[in-house]
Write a protein that binds this DNA or RNA. Structure first.
Lengths: 249, 249
DNA sequence: CTTTCTTTGGATCGGCGATCCAAAGCGCAT
DNA sequence: ATGCGCTTTGGATCGCCGATCCAAAGAAAG
């Protein structure tokens, strides 16, 4: 078999009519890069997609980039994957599943709930694109594990059945909200070369310039905006909801 | 104002060379559609964009569709608008501002908070694309009004200053989470021609087929999933939050 | 009327997701 | 072993998108 180096392929494309299929094959023998020896698979593709996403955000996942990274063509990828959405969903499921696998359920239900929420928070913090995709498709199969754990822990907290469903949904909605916001911040951080502190300073400055008479609260909150820690604030929010759930009996 | 009928534009385009700049003008006089008499403006464009978004979701807002709807060209639009993101943000601000303008602050802070959250919920329910854009950019200028109102109402609820900032953020995050989820549902509804009930039935059926031993909570929640009302569940969540605030002092 | 500036229309570009097809390998039946 | 069909691969191609660019058309200034 002739080992052909991946040089430039044919530059001059046929300038045939616009819609004509290439039925009558021309004389020129088309050079082909050799077929890959190691088999492509859905897992390999998902893995490569995850690395692209982690490296450059959601915009870095393009079919073109995938073909380059895997040294293959479009057809090979689309043979294992339905479309780009399928790929993004699979990568998200992958991350979520991994997070849940590492989770240990504590004895105290309250602490376990807090730990689960924080686990999801940290995962989204590490992979912001997961937050975006998750807030777009909150009912992925991988999330069922989450709902189940939350439901059980609420049961352990003696939340009665009629309210348990609403309580679980509320908690999930809160986590999703933070996820989306975090992902948005991370996106902005990557887009601009201003880091998180600079971005917050920017918002805080705009807030500080508001009329203190019309916007007393926002105007006064600028200091806290600069200093606050996202993770701690998130946990505080979880505690608020847990307290509210306990108060509802 | 002269309403120009949307007649056919020029059909036959010039078939110039592929990459050559049209410096040396050829002999053929290029036919031009007449210039519009009524002035274009940023507001008119934002209005048209909103109608497109309401009509066909986020994917319906394309520059091409805008030029057709306004009977104009790309250049005219880009003269008034920075880029597509600017346009989407402006349309979102427009909707949010309108919602806030119609809001009346009640005497009871608890009821007022509930009303504000529901107002945002209803607006996003009516314009799902607002939810997506809002969860992507939670710090739009139009949202400052919201933060301010929430802060004042929390103050009226005697939430002390150190906790007020966290509490306001938590509530906003919760609302954002619901917003994103709602927008996702609406998107799916529009994509498939299955309506909301059919979609929920689909999810519920998948849940029902899970192993009842491994997933007792999710398996049992299918009935509630089918029957629950999004709006009521959202309000329940707000009440949980309010109870949590009260419990934490 | 002439010049200058603002606003408009549309050709064009590069990049994207998706489709399609032929080549290449692989396995099974003969 | 040999031919034949099925699976997998590589890449040309299509249509559409956002964005850029430029010349024409009018409005304003002189």
């Amino acid at each position: 078999m002739v080992k052909r180096t991946p040089e430039e392929t044919s530059e001059e494309t046929s300038e045939g009519t616009s819609a004509g299929p290439s039925k009558s094959s021309s004389a020129a023998a088309p050079p082909r890069t050799p077929r890959r020896t190691d088999g492509l698979s859905r897992e390999v593709i998902v893995q490569a997609a995850t690395e692209l996403l982690d490296g450059g955000g959601e915009s870095a996942l393009t079919l073109r980039a995938l073909t380059v990274r895997l040294s293959t063509g479009y057809g090979a990828i689309y043979h294992h994957v339905a479309d780009k959405g399928d790929l993004l969903a699979a990568a998200t499921d992958d991350v979520i599943t991994r997070v849940l696998a590492d989770m240990v359920m504590d004895a105290d239900p309250r602490e376990a709930l807090r730990r689960m929420a924080v686990g999801l928070f940290d995962a989204i913090d590490a992979h912001p694109w997961v937050g975006t995709e998750l807030s777009r498709q909150p009912w992925r199969p991988a999330m069922v594990e989450f709902y189940e754990s939350i439901g059980r822990l609420l049961d352990a907290l003696a939340v009665p059945e009629p309210a348990r469903f609403d309580a679980a949904g509320t908690l999930v909605n809160y986590v999703m909200g933070v996820a989306g916001q975090n992902a948005a911040n991370a996106r902005r951080r990557a887009g601009d070369d201003t880091d998180r502190a600079a971005f917050l300073d920017n918002v805080a400055e705009q807030w500080a310039q508001l009329d203190p008479d019309r916007y007393p609260f926002v105007h006064a909150a600028t200091t806290r905006l600069r200093e606050h820690d996202d993770r701690e604030q998130f946990i505080t929010g979880v505690d608020i909801f847990l307290a509210g759930i306990a108060a509802l009996h």
